[in-house]
Lab assay of single mutants.
Amino acid sequence: PREAYIVTIEKGKPGQTVTWYQLRADHPKPDSLISEHPTAQEAMDAKKRYED
């Protein structure tokens, strides 16, 4: 089974940042970016789909 994890990042100019959620996995390479999402819920949904 595949495993993934969610990383929170800040995008934008200082003082005007927006939080994004990255879905990452250690396949095919360590810390590979799988997808980016504007909400934590979307990231969790993507994580479930990826791991299923």
Rank of each mutant, 00 (worst) to 15 (best):
D52R: 14
R49V: 13
G15S: 06
H37T: 01
T8Y: 06
K47H: 05
D45G: 06
K29D: 10
D31W: 14
E42S: 09
P14L: 10
I6H: 00
A25D: 04
K47V: 03
Q41M: 10
T39F: 04
E42M: 07
V18H: 10
E36N: 04
Y50W: 15
T39G: 03
V7H: 05
R49Y: 08
T39W: 03
A25F: 04
V7A: 05
D26Y: 08
L23Q: 01
A40R: 15
D26E: 06
P1S: 13
W20V: 09
M44R: 11
G15I: 03
R2Q: 08
K48S: 09
E10Q: 14
E3R: 15
D52N: 14
Q41T: 09
D26G: 11
G12D: 04
Q41F: 07
L33A: 04
H37A: 01
G12H: 06
P28L: 12
K48A: 12
P38R: 14
I6L: 05
Q16M: 13
I9F: 06
K29V: 14
V7P: 00
A40K: 15
Y50H: 06
E36W: 06
P14D: 13
E10G: 05
E36M: 06
V7T: 09
P1T: 13
A43W: 00
E42R: 04
A46S: 04
G12I: 05
A25M: 06
E42F: 03
R24H: 06
H27A: 07
Y50P: 00
T8M: 14
K48E: 09
T8W: 07
A4Y: 14
D45R: 10
T17V: 09
Y5W: 15
P38Y: 07
G15H: 06
E36R: 01
P14N: 13
H27E: 12
A4D: 00
I9D: 02
Q22T: 03
H27K: 11
A25Q: 05
Y5Q: 04
G15N: 07
R2V: 11
I6R: 00
H37S: 01
H27Q: 12
T8I: 14
V7W: 04
R2Y: 12
E3T: 15
K48I: 11
D45C: 11
A4H: 06
R49M: 11
K13V: 13
T19G: 04
Q16D: 12
R49P: 01
M44V: 10
P1W: 13
D45S: 09
E10I: 12
I6V: 08
Y5A: 02
G15K: 05
K11T: 06
Q16A: 13
T19I: 14
D45Q: 12
W20D: 02
A43Q: 01
K47W: 07
Q16R: 11
E51A: 08
A43T: 02
P30W: 08
V7R: 10
M44A: 12
A4Q: 02
H27I: 12
Y50L: 07
P14A: 12
G12L: 04
E3W: 15
Q41L: 11
R49A: 14
E36Y: 03
A40D: 05
T19S: 06
G15L: 05
A43K: 00
Q41S: 10
P30I: 10
V7G: 03
M44P: 00
I34R: 02
T8S: 11
K48G: 06
E36G: 02
P14F: 10
T39M: 03
M44W: 13
Y50Q: 02
E3V: 15
T39K: 03
S32E: 06
P28H: 13
K13D: 13
P38A: 14
L33W: 05
Q41Y: 07
S32W: 11
R2T: 10
H37M: 01
S32M: 09
W20S: 05
